[in-house]
């Protein structure tokens, strides 16, 4: 009788042990990418890089191409400075405001939810407050897109948070962990590819101006 009772107790326990869900593979893969990103992320040091931007847009017959210098400051300031004067300079100030410096000499502020969301994402990627998953992901919806490579796809929490942007895919360098490429998929159907290379963290004591490098917009 005692054995029978013991068997009755053990059988359901064994069933639970067998039926326990497997570890969330997606979550593990996201954690892997966050860990890889954190090896290079350091919000206390400035970051400088060269960038290559390609915009596939219905506004032009051919894709728009530009090169330039990218810089991110621990204060939160970020700049995309085109090599050519025919490319606007994009500046994200420490308080999150976005403005474009135009060839005509004017400045166009962009006060739109989509711009604010994208600026916030760029600051989390390049000058995070801390190198944790929460600091990188924030409130966004994150998933791993299909295909190869260490990639993360970010989507705004709600459509109205960034109505003009569908998703942003971030490609991490599989060895160094830095952001190697960003693809912005816009709601209008346009797509922007930004490739980063020569990524370095200059010593703040001797950091030169990041927009010194040459390049052309084609």
């Amino acid at each position: 009788m005692r054995h029978l009772l013991l068997a009755c107790a053990l059988v359901p326990s064994a069933r639970f042990a067998v039926a326990a869900p497997p570890p969330d593979r997606t979550l593990r893969r996201i954690e892997n990418r966050v860990q890889l990103w954190s090896t290079h992320a350091d919000g206390t040091r400035p970051l400088a890089a060269r960038f290559e931007l390609v915009r596939h847009t219905a506004l032009l017959r051919e894709p728009y191409r530009a090169t330039g210098s990218f810089s991110a400051d621990p204060s939160g300031a970020i700049a995309f400075v085109g090599d050519d004067t025919r490319c606007a300079t994009t500046r994200i100030s420490p308080d999150g405001t976005v403005s474009l410096a135009l060839p005509s000499g004017g400045t166009r502020p962009i006060d739109a939810p989509s711009a604010r969301w994208l600026a916030n994402l760029l600051r989390r990627l390049f000058v995070p407050a801390e190198e944790t998953r929460q600091a990188l992901v924030g409130n966004d919806r994150v998933r791993i897109p299909s295909g190869r490579g260490m990639r993360l796809e970010f989507r705004p929490p709600a459509p109205e948070d960034a109505p003009h942007i569908r998703a942003v895919t971030v490609h991490l360098d599989p060895v160094a962990g830095h952001v190697a490429r960003i693809d912005v998929f816009e709601a209008s159907g346009d797509r922007v590819e930004i490739r980063f290379h020569d990524v370095r963290r200059p010593d703040p004591q001797h950091a030169g101006r990041p927009d010194a490098a040459g390049g052309t917009a084609r």
């Binding site: 915009r55 847009t57 085109g82 976005v98 474009l100 166009r108 962009i110 346009d190």
Partner: peptide, 12 residues
């Protein structure tokens, strides 16, 4: 020139 900004989509 604005096409060279990643933020252009917000005002496109």
């Amino acid at each position: 020139a604005m096409l060279g900004s990643p933020m252009f989509g917000a005002i496109a």
